[in-house]
């Protein structure tokens, strides 16, 4: 006790300084709005950080429960998804519909079976004639051209893949509209050949190849791929190798295109051929 008193007397100057300073700072923070606000702001920042740390830690402890709930929710959503795509609902989007003349009609479908490693590859879709799919409709996905419907049953339809030696489609170079014939050579599922491009055209690696729209199956301008190599081989035409933009090994959801004016177009074309 005496020692304490001695210390207080010895350091009375410093102690008094601290006391007075504390009093004035207390006054400062309590009586001045600006300083008070700043002080609260700073302390809230600090406490906020501490709370965040604590919250981060406690979040770990509840992870198991949260994971379980997420898994449960995922299953539920998957079931809903399954019902939706298995159902016979039609998803369609208008195109070229400027004057109520819708030109193309899209139906979404799911690929349920396919091959890529044969010479004649086909796909099977989960929708058929009951939602309006007919033979000779084009099949595309967001990434590019897939093939053409060859036969339909009530629930399913088969599609001749772009990766089929019998498949040919009219394609063009997007930059200058020179068109040629596109086919697969049966070797690599990521590459196709484009023929009949005249040799005086400037073709560079990376040029985009799109559908020409001449076939009455595909609309114009659907992407197919990009030019990989090009060389002139004996004659007046390029032999161009095209990198497909679509990966046939990862197809799930695709769209079937029906050309609503196809009949009319073909009728007219046949008339003039006769």
């Amino acid at each position: 006790m005496r020692n304490l008193l001695r210390i207080i007397i010895a350091y009375h100057f410093q102690i008094l300084f601290v006391i007075l300073e504390v009093i004035s700072i207390f006054l400062l923070l309590n009586q001045n709005d600006f300083q008070k606000a700043r002080f609260l702001n700073i302390t809230h920042n600090i406490t906020g950080r501490v709370y965040k740390k604590i919250n981060n830690t406690t979040a770990y402890l509840t992870l198991k429960k949260i994971n379980y709930r997420l898994a449960e929710e995922n299953t539920k959503l998957k079931n809903i998804l399954e019902r939706t795509y298995r159902s016979d609902e039609i998803f369609f989007f208008g195109e070229s519909d400027s004057l109520h003349h819708q030109h193309y009609f899209y139906t979404s479908a799911k690929v349920i079976n396919q091959t890529v490693n044969k010479q004649h590859n086909f796909l099977t879709l989960n929708k058929g004639s009951n939602v309006g799919i007919r033979p000779e409709m084009g099949v595309v996905s967001r990434d590019g051209v897939i093939g053409i419907v060859v036969s339909v049953s009530k629930q399913f339809s088969t599609v001749i893949s772009l990766l089929n030696l019998d498949f040919r489609v009219s394609a063009k170079l997007a930059k200058n509209n020179y068109f040629g014939s596109l086919h697969w050579d049966g070797k690599d599922y990521r590459k196709v050949k484009l023929d009949e491009i005249p040799y005086h055209i400037d073709v560079n690696k990376g040029d985009t190849v799109v559908t020409s729209g001449y076939s009455s199956i595909f609309p114009e301008g659907i992407i197919i791929g990009t030019v990989c190599t090009s060389e002139v081989k004996g004659g007046n035409f390029y032999e161009i190798e095209v990198d497909l933009s679509i990966d046939f090994k990862s197809l799930v959801y695709i769209e079937v295109i029906s050309n609503l004016q196809r009949e009319e177009q073909i009728e007219l074309e046949e008339l003039s051929n006769d």
């Binding site: 007075l20 004035s24 207390f26 400062l28 923070l29 001045n32 300083q35």
Partner: peptide, 30 residues
């Protein structure tokens, strides 16, 4: 020295009371 601090406190707070910023001049003067 204690009187030094007290006088600093007193003059500081009297200025503060006039300027209406309690504590600001007090703390600085102390």
């Amino acid at each position: 020295r204690w009187l030094l601090l007290i006088s600093g406190f007193v003059i500081g707070i009297s200025i503060d009371l006039f300027v209406n910023t309690p504590g600001m001049h007090t703390s600085a003067t102390v």
